[in-house]
């Protein structure tokens, strides 16, 4: 069994490296900025969903409030940049650290909650964050923050027309989130999380440090999501509370993982690769009608996939042969 597991991990790593290499080469063939835009969003949401998956999929703590960390990342970066001239690269790290600390601070009371009480608590805390930013004059309140654009610069991570730097950053973020997940799967934490998810009481009695392992998952997850938020702020070059901390981001982080396969290594990537292009294309083709057809198509797909494939789209690819460690 251990040998199978090790072999699967090696295979996953090779597949990931090949996919990443192929992805890195796509800009050679894809020159259209609209397609590039879709690719960037897909990679970003794949990365975000992968990070969300660490806490909610592996550790089983379903959060629908990750927009809080996304927004904190975006705001920390841009407040530091516009108010104090701190370069976004440092702002990105700062945003990640702030989010991780807040995630751990919230973890103390939150991890006592279970099931729907926990889910609603996460929604509610993100809403509080949204309302506070909406009323915080110094941070721009409803007006938001416009990032001053002075021209292409790696130092300030801003580019006028070319999308390639954003593309490679999103790819790097996605790979990082994937690799962290891959690495954690086989770590002490990874085993603990699986135990916590299966049966927290039994895990505790077996000596698993349930609480600290949840805290670790929350911190890693929040850190990566905040980096994604910083990236998004630089990419869009304008943020306001609604557009970085709204509930829709919490959902958009969860959906790819759920549709692809929650708590799996490849689910978020697969889910994002299908969901994000689909939402963009339905809006392009049907959105201008004003009749809500895009919503009907989008919603129906979510219902059908959830019902038909409860383990996510990934279950279509899984081999009938049992691979021991794969749950």
């Amino acid at each position: 069994m251990d040998k199978d597991f090790a072999a699967r991990r090696r295979r996953d790593l090779i597949i990931a490296a090949v996919l990443a290499a192929i992805a890195a080469l796509t800009p050679l063939f894809v020159k259209d900025v609209v397609v590039q835009n879709i690719l960037i969003l897909t990679l970003m949401y794949a990365g975000l969903s992968q990070s969300w998956n660490i806490l909610s999929g592996y550790c089983g703590q379903i959060s629908l409030g990750h927009a809080l960390y996304f927004g904190l990342g975006a705001y920390t970066t841009e407040l530091l940049f516009t108010k104090f001239g701190v370069l976004p690269w440092f702002g990105m790290l700062a945003g990640g650290v702030v989010s991780a600390l807040i995630a751990m601070g919230l973890g103390y009371p939150f991890f006592r909650l279970r099931g729907h009480y926990f889910v609603i608590a996460t929604i509610v805390i993100a809403e509080i964050g949204l309302l506070l930013f909406h009323n915080w004059e110094w941070a721009g309140a409803a007006m938001g923050i416009t990032i001053p654009i002075r021209g292409d610069s790696w130092l300030k991570f801003q580019f006028l027309r070319t999308k390639l730097p954003y593309f490679y950053f999103a790819l790097a973020l996605c790979c990082l989130a994937w690799f962290v997940t891959w690495w954690l799967e086989n770590s002490k934490w990874g085993f603990w999380w699986r135990a916590v998810k299966d049966n927290p009481d039994a895990a505790e009695s077996l000596g698993v440090d349930v609480f600290n392992s949840k805290m670790g998952a929350a911190a890693v997850s929040a850190f990566l999501v905040a980096v994604g938020g910083s990236f998004y702020a630089q990419f869009v070059s304008y943020i306001d509370p609604e557009s970085v901390m709204g509930f829709q981001f919490s959902l958009l982080m969860a959906l790819p993982a759920v549709l692809g396969g929650i708590g799996t290594l490849w689910g978020p990537v697969l889910g994002a690769a299908i969901l994000i292009p689909l939402t963009e294309l339905t809006r392009f083709k049907l959105g201008g009608s004003g009749r809500g057809v895009d919503l009907i198509v989008y919603g129906t797909l979510i219902v059908l996939i959830s019902l038909a494939l409860p383990r996510g789209l990934l279950s279509l690819f899984s081999r009938p042969k049992k691979t021991g460690a794969a749950r």
């Binding site: 306001d240 557009s243 829709q248 959105g287 201008g288 004003g290 895009d294």
Partner: peptide
């Protein structure tokens, strides 16, 4: 040509 921004600055 009409396009839908859904009140989202990014879109």
């Amino acid at each position: 040509v009409f396009a839908d921004h859904q009140a989202d600055p990014q879109k």
